[in-house]
Design a protein around this nucleic acid. Structure first.
Lengths: 158, 158
DNA sequence: CCTGAAACTGAGACGCAATCTCAACCATGC
DNA sequence: GCATGGTTGAGATTGCGTCTCAGTTTCAGG
């Protein structure tokens, strides 16, 4: 196993997960480890089906129940989070530095954005409402430059 | 702040809805009108079940299918919008001035908030990405004061 | 007013993501 | 050994939301 940045993050995630499990008196099982590895080895955004498929491909299949359970644990531990809801099922993503999403409703493109200022204001709002934030989703739906251009070119209704 | 002219908005919503239906060659039925009235007569936020229950109480029951269909039409016409997703089912709300939501993941309570500053930053972000915003959802999930207190009390005796 | 084509409704079947159940299965400590 | 207590997976279950289709209603044009 080479010492790349990816491998490093990978290892620390494994360690963090192990700690979390130990702290709760839960067991560090091959299945759980494999879910973690599958997620962190490649996917930035992913749906459950991606994980199911990839684990099967790797010859380490796990049941949906186990994957859902592990995903909950990982989300609890702050290593992944629900990213985008809509269109039927939920997408997750690694937790990296925080960011939000622009979603093109026409072509489905996703652009990430970050705004420290928005984060700050959110905290302020939560304080004002005596509310303990756990997560948030901030998603702007609209048209990316290309799709907007394409639509403008077409004649629009009167 | 002036008192909201509920009756006026009500009438204009009916007219707007009628126009929308006519424009699409759809029919203005008692069921549709009743769904509109039920929504606008009281509910700021509501789930489908609220509408089902209230229409039954009023002696004008409608099937879930009809209600879902009408809700889609109203959303299309911009009179209501999906407000909060999570905890299983979707909440809708009237379209009024814009605002966003705090959702208590424990008891399901919803608090609204507005931030002109956040709106401004969003516009700025869209400009920077040459993105045409159509709608957005901004939702902070966490624990309201009451649920946080309850949890803290419980945690003190594991 | 009629009348018929087209749209609408309701009951229930269905689809589907997510959750739950439970018996068999470890891993660990005594 | 074997008892304890968490884990797994297959499949059942839940529950929101959508779809189907036969019977009903609307409304423009006669």
């Amino acid at each position: 196993m080479p010492h790349t940045p990816i491998a490093a993050r990978f290892a620390s995630a494994e360690a963090a997960f192990a700690d979390q499990l130990r702290a709760k008196g839960l067991k560090n099982t091959p299945e759980r480890l494999e879910v973690l590895r599958t997620i962190f080895s490649r996917h930035a955004h992913f749906a459950i089906e991606d994980i199911v498929a990839e684990m099967r491909r790797r010859g380490r299949p796990a049941s949906r129940a186990t994957i859902y359970r592990t995903l909950s644990l990982l989300a609890e531990g702050g290593m992944i989070r629900e990213a985008v809801r809509g269109n039927g099922y939920t997408h997750y993503e690694h937790v990296r530095e925080h960011h939000d999403h622009l979603l093109c409703v026409h072509c489905g493109a996703v652009v990430e954005f970050v705004s420290a200022e928005i984060e700050r204001i959110q905290d302020e709002i939560c304080r004002r409402h005596v509310f303990t934030p756990l997560s948030h989703s901030h998603q702007i739906n609209g048209l990316c430059a290309r799709c907007e251009g394409r639509r403008a070119r077409k004649a629009s209704r009167p």
